[in-house]
């Protein structure tokens, strides 16, 4: 039977829809490792991206070093005063840290081992602009693996969501797809920190009667099974208790400066296993 033009018009869209659905379903498995194509693209483009970033950085350095020095003296004086204050504070914290170590030893706690950190350089951002992901220049050959935490000197930045040999894809905590189990450091109130996608995060599921104040520091609780406990996430910027509803709205400003991302550090340690998961596995066995 000859295929008429109308039949062909019907068949082509159906084939395209079937192809689309099969492509989606074929790729719905976990993307722990980058695909061959992704690795190839990243391998080819990352050196060029690094060069472009280097050039832009160089221009920025010249600008900051020579043309942008208005008010530097006053700023320098202010920073010196701030430094003096911070030195005093650091001294106090050191004392507290020593006391803490002594108490831990007395209570026979497991000795805390310094977490190994792997420095990495930022290569590129998400091209679509809809997500908050970055690409770094360290991969599985350097010991980076899925779900490792990525931090900066200021605080937690995100977690690794995809790895190739020499590169890794990192989901920043600003992304709405990111969720970190968090604690208010002062009052130990728990919540889940999710990204708002615009240099702000939201601490969700904090009950209306819980004690949260503007300026409170938010840290990771270690309960999510991905991030180590005690990493600084940010500070509370806004607390809104509506007239109804179970929870209050707590907006958090991340501690890490995402607008000046240059270098990050990957926490090279397997994520802590959740006790609940262990129990579930035992039950399965």
């Amino acid at each position: 039977m000859p295929v008429t033009s109308q039949t062909r018009k019907l068949i082509i869209p159906i084939l395209i829809i079937l192809l689309a659905l099969s492509l989606i379903s074929a790729n719905l498995h976990s993307r722990e490792n980058m695909s061959f194509f992704e690795s190839l693209v990243v391998g080819i483009t990352s050196p060029i991206q690094k060069v472009v970033r280097g050039i832009i950085g160089g221009i920025g350095e010249v600008w900051r070093g020579y043309f942008y020095l208005v008010g530097t003296h006053q700023e320098n004086e202010a920073l010196k005063r701030e430094l003096q204050k911070l030195k005093l504070q650091v001294n106090r914290y050191r004392e507290a840290d020593l006391a803490n170590q002594r108490l831990r030893a007395l209570l026979n706690f497991k000795k805390s081992i310094a977490t190994p950190l792997l420095p990495a350089e930022l290569v590129a951002f998400d091209p679509s602009g809809w997500f908050q992901t970055i690409l770094i220049d360290k991969g599985s050959s350097d010991g980076v693996a899925q779900d490792m935490a990525v931090v900066s000197a200021e605080g937690l930045m995100g977690r690794v969501i995809g790895v190739s040999n020499h590169h890794a894809k990192v989901l920043l905590i600003l992304d709405p797809n990111s969720a970190v189990d968090a604690l208010i450091q002062r009052s130990r109130v728990r919540g889940v920190l999710v990204g708002l996608g615009r240099h702000r995060c939201l601490l969700k599921y904090v009950q209306r009667n819980e004690d949260v104040q503007v300026g409170d520091r938010v840290i990771s609780s270690g309960m999510g099974g991905v991030f180590p406990k005690g990493l600084l996430l940010g500070t509370v910027q806004e607390v809104v208790r509506g007239s109804s509803g179970l929870f209050q709205r707590v907006e958090v400003e991340p501690a890490a400066n995402f607008s000046k991302l240059e270098e990050v550090m990957v926490v090279i340690q397997p994520p802590p296993e959740e006790p609940r998961l262990k129990g579930a596995r035992k039950r399965q066995k």
Binding site: N27, M34, V42, F125, D126, F131, L135, K169, L171
Partner: peptide
């Protein structure tokens, strides 16, 4: 798709 956190093409 290289930089996206989503599954699927």
């Amino acid at each position: 798709d290289v930089g996206l956190p989503l599954k699927g093409l």
